[in-house]
Design a protein around this nucleic acid. Structure first.
Lengths: 183, 183, 183, 183
DNA sequence: TATGAATGAGAATTCATTCAT
DNA sequence: GATGAATGAATTCTCATTCAT
């Protein structure tokens, strides 16, 4: 069901993906979709929740045993890139179609993505505490650099047809980010 | 006319801004809007063209006399931040509502923003040539870091109500970016 | 549904018959009309298809047992007149409002009416073969006389208010047509 | 002006021919069109009035010296065919686009075409009086045969691209019509 | 006579959602 | 749980016409 939604919305876009087409792709009747989702917006939110949720959880688990901020950052970028590189349609949904959200949805999206933001800021604070990153940096601003860079990188990748290896860019991206914040 | 469009779309969003409301805000009849714009999409495109176009031109002129890549970068960030900080509704349009564009529009948006991308890459290449930035960086990837960081910063600012001074963040943002790429 | 469409379009004309009025006449919601027809043009096409289709079928069946070309012609005219005399609104649609069709529709109309044209030409060829009609006549030109005469007769009838008995004209019309082509 | 209207309406159709395009074709401003015509409908009416008017006048003049009903009929058909064969766009207007008229216009069209109908009925009555045509024919019904046959012939000619010589069909058409009514 | 900027009415169509079965 | 027929709100765009210049 969620897979069908990702496929249809990814290819057609949110506003061009009638519930009826998602239902068809999933092999159920239109009305049945409403047994799984509250409404159309809820589909988009659910896609993000499952995806980012899993990614966040995976990273949180890794962080329990890892202590080096730079390795943590590399892992955070890697998992995020991997998650989206694995499914082009999913990347289209998160990078392109999710942006069509209206204000009510944006609030929900914010709630979902906040824990991920938290992980980034956690790395930055920890790096500063350990004397690896500069004390002068504002972790909120630096967090936006980290997330903004990843976001822009994935968007560029998916908009150009997802032809090259996204995960292969990890080292260069991490290198830039680390240089940006380290002493 | 363009001002009315920015105001209405900025506050209501593209899909929630009927042509009739834009016409009313501009004090003209509905049909008159079509003497200024080809269709509704053209309104969004026109807003971007005027805005980014002016910003890009201003930066290009400055670059004719400035030679230091880091000062160039600071100027590029400053002008961009200033341009959007000056008009919250405009920032809402470019950071939020413009993302609702469908594929046809995205192509046009790409055409408009490409020269700005070119300026960023120009700075990066020049910095490398002058031995200020690392030779190992990929200018396309680094460009995404620069643009992605600015983009994320402005989006965060406007989504939290544009309450603080965006331009005041320039130094910290530039500091992060420069650290990211310099030797 | 089709009946409602014939009534409304017959009385108001194609361009003056909003979908909403057809829906109202049929006692359904506007959107429901689109469960029966692809779009507004399709309504007009469907009316013709049902009508001329039935008439053509009825004539074809009769032709299987009848061999005399003149009796065939009389039957062809009779059924056509009867079909339209039975429903003034239908006649208004076929004789008046259908002519508002644009090029794309005219092609579809042509496809529907062609079998009927074929029946007329069949009669003419058969009459010539049997030595009843003149060999010198061009069946295409004569077909236009036959159809044009019927068409003009029905149009005149419906435009003057359908006050007299259309079917009652059959003998005189057939008499003129037969004289036109017979030896 | 009228020529421009015939060209534009003939090619694009009445509903697809904005006043602005007619004005452009005529090399004047939109508003200027209204100095020549009362409104858009008036353009269509004027085209018909000029055309049919001239044709009718020409035939009336010929009838003053000609006494043979069959030669009169041949002349009537010839002039009508010639008039439309000379200008394909005009034929498109009279045979196709004029049919989009609404009721008010149809009345005006009727007024214009009535004198032409009168000429046909005049020929028929005269032919009967002279003992050339059958006394049994109803002149109104026969007039519809004559006009309907011509109309259908011209429509078929223009809808198939006006590729063959319309006037060349005159003899065959007249032959069918004369046979239809003569003793 | 001529202009052309401005008007604003008017209608087809889509599609998320419901609910009786 | 599942269906799918029916709903009806909501909006872009065109273009005949006017009128101040």
């Amino acid at each position: 069901m969620l897979t069908a939604a990702i496929t249809v919305i990814g290819q057609a876009g949110y506003h061009n993906a009638p519930i009826s087409r998602i239902a068809k792709e999933a092999g159920v009747a239109d009305g049945t979709v409403y047994l799984y989702f509250k409404n159309k917006e809820d589909i988009l939110i659910s896609i993000l929740r499952e995806t980012i949720g899993q990614i966040t959880t995976r990273i949180e688990e890794y962080f329990e045993t890892e202590t080096d901020p730079i390795r943590k950052l590399r892992y955070l970028v890697t998992v995020y890139f991997e998650g989206l590189a694995a499914n082009k349609n999913l990347a289209l949904v998160t990078q392109i179609h999710l942006r069509q959200a209206d204000e009510a949805m944006r609030r929900q999206i914010g709630d979902i993505i906040r824990p991920y933001y938290g992980l980034i800021e956690h790395i930055l604070r920890e790096g500063i505490e350990k004397g690896i990153f500069r004390e002068s940096i504002d972790t909120r601003i630096a967090r936006r650099m980290v997330f903004g860079t990843m976001d822009e990188t994935i968007t560029a990748w998916v908009l150009t047809g997802a032809k090259y290896d996204l995960v292969g860019l990890t080292d260069q991206v991490v290198d830039l980010l680390v240089h940006g914040v380290k002493k």
